[in-house]
Design a protein around this nucleic acid. Structure first.
Lengths: 123, 123, 123, 123
DNA sequence: GTGGTCTAGACCACT
DNA sequence: GTGGTCTAGACCACG
């Protein structure tokens, strides 16, 4: 999987989001060990310090935990993972609605369009 | 309004999208004259050739029309504008759905969430 | 005032504590601008990045706020400052009690000793 | 038990304090033989000369006594041990009060807080 | 080999 | 000049 890092936003922030996605979507399971800073840095093609900063952020937020001298693991707190997922989803929804309303759609039009797109189930 | 041009995608493509948005959202009205290439290029801080390429693209798609020796105007074909709007919306919806499904949401969950979001507070 | 930085604990952590103290004890008032990263780094004799990390921590905790391109200020949230003070005090008390109990004092002995030391007011 | 020796203060002084603590808290009983300089030095990971200096200091203060050709023992003078304990405690109290007053607490506030802390949960 | 920390030096956007 | 970010290279403790 490519890392697709832009130079338009802090690299470490993009890495944080990417790993967050991998955790909430189950690529990294709760309790699973994640690769070392150096490994991830090499894979992403960034400086280890940059990866370090990203992982520190994830640690601070509680999504991963550092096991001294033995790597980092994803939190076993599934509730926290779900909360993160919900929070990301909420942001996605807000941004989507924002863009659609800039295009001139009313909220109810958006729902109708989405209903059509998803196959027409009832709301 | 800032132009927010990234270096990660072709500049001219970003400009095309931006002017498209301004047309479909009514910033530029049907039939309205749009500023000259030189003016727009200066405003966006890009090379006039780049702006030229963007406008040619918009012309090709029919959204703007060149008036010989007198600049360019937005099409009066409101239907075409609506179609463009719908097309952009459709893309937005697809991308939104894709992102939500990567997060692990089912289509019906997405509709439920959106209903909650659009029903509650104002955006 | 000397910075007294040990090499036995992360320098940035010691700096965080020191500035925390200066805030809760009123050396830096709520809303007051604090010196720039470079200034503080020079004063403390550390690398600007180290000071940067310390200030980022303080920002994350909410005690200081960065004003883009114009420095940092102490939070105006006096309640948060009081909470920080209480939290530091609680830690100090716990550590003090711990040390005294290692010395073999009972809790009530400690109170008696302190009462004597502070002048003998009634509890 | 780790020795936790800093490089920021004389090592021998830190050792003196540590052994003092072990004596006043009963880890070493009155009259008990203490390990040899070589043994202690190895355990602490310091040069025997450093340990020697620490033990001489303890001897000078009277807490330990050298038995010609047969090592050192803790004093049997329990009163002296108690005095040492009281002296250490007094220092701890003074330092504690100073830190709390730097935080802006009045002496009576400190007593109140401590009373709350010692009355509540167990340490 | 792992994470953690620090230094040095650089470039950027903002104002 | 300010904060923010990134890179490169180094040393440390831990096990």
């Amino acid at each position: 999987m490519a890392w697709n890092l832009n130079s338009d936003r802090p690299i470490y922030a993009q890495i944080v989001e990417r790993i967050q996605m991998q955790i909430v979507s189950g690529v990294y399971q709760p309790g699973e060990k994640i690769p070392s800073v150096r490994e991830l840095a090499a894979e992403a093609g960034v400086n280890p310090n940059t990866m370090q900063k990203a992982l520190s952020e994830l640690e601070r937020s509680g999504l991963v935990t550092a096991i001294r001298t033995s790597g980092r693991v994803v939190t076993e707190n599934r509730e926290m993972i779900m909360e993160t997922r919900n929070s990301i989803a909420k942001t996605q929804i807000q941004e989507f609605l924002q863009r659609m309303m800039e295009l001139g759609y009313e909220k109810k039009d958006i729902l109708t369009l989405l209903k059509k797109e998803t196959g027409g189930e009832d709301l």
